[in-house]
């Protein structure tokens, strides 16, 4: 499922109308190539969450253009009919908290989407197990999420985000609940996965420890993004 990453041009989002209208996003331009991990940082109220929701096709932007892979999904209006299928097939999510489904075991948490999409259970689970192995949590494959540590849960969440091999993964503060060692491990995994699955990964964070690891960082302030070159340090 390799694609051409994600490209955003002049994205705007306005909440409300008339005098009370607030421009959460004024002009956002981003481009993330497959296999690349970029950071998205900014203070609270800068529009990070709004941008993430727009990218995640959860809320509609007001104007602008979004291209996912080689498909224009938004151009002053949605260009795809089924946003849910879009989210399911093209976008992977990794959240601040892992939000695993508590009543499914680790394997099924990862395999859920393909199974719901009609992939035979066995096949879906096998694929999930492969992913878990890649993320080094295969030994917890049969555990339920509540039995896992925070880092393990986050890795499972990443596996779930990857399972459909989406062209883009949106990670919302994936390291927030973790100590720096585990946070670093998660970032390393994200980088490895981005490489391996040729996925564009956008990591929203304000974690000072991990910002230096990105090669490129988008700063967002008052609804406007600025691209900066990151330090691209290692993960140790």
């Amino acid at each position: 499922m390799s694609g051409k990453g994600i490209r955003i041009n002049g994205l705007r989002k306005r909440y409300g109308e008339g005098d009370t209208a607030v421009d959460a996003l004024k002009s956002v331009d981003m481009q993330v190539a497959p296999g690349e991990v970029v950071g998205l940082v900014g203070p609270s109220g800068s529009g990070k969450s709004t941008l993430l929701k727009c990218l995640g096709a959860v809320i509609a932007p007001t104007a602008g253009e979004m291209v996912l892979g080689d498909e224009v999904i938004y151009d002053d209006g949605w260009r795809v009919r089924d946003l849910r299928a879009l989210r399911r097939d093209k976008i992977g999510f990794v959240f601040q908290a892992p939000y695993l489904i508590p009543f499914l075991d680790v394997t099924d948490n990862v395999a859920l989407l393909p199974m719901l999409a009609g992939v035979p259970n066995g096949e879906a689970r096998k694929h999930a197990l492969d992913l878990l192995t890649a993320l080094d949590v295969q030994h917890r494959a049969r555990a339920v999420p509540s039995q896992l540590s925070g880092g393990e849960q986050q890795r499972v969440a990443i596996a779930r985000g990857l399972v459909n091999r989406p062209p883009v993964i949106l990670a919302d503060e994936p390291t927030a609940p973790l100590d720096s060692e585990r946070a670093m491990a998660v970032i390393r995994i994200l980088n490895e996965m981005a490489q391996e699955y040729e996925t564009a990964i956008i990591v929203v964070t304000h974690d000072e420890k991990i910002i230096p690891t990105f090669k490129r960082v988008y700063h967002i302030r008052d609804g406007v993004t600025h691209e900066e070159a990151g330090e691209g340090k290692g993960f140790e």
């Binding site: 075991d105 394997t107 099924d108 066995g122 689970r125 049969r142």
Partner: peptide
Amino acid sequence: MKTIPFQR
């Protein structure tokens, strides 16, 4: 099913 979850 190859993997039987929550067997107990």
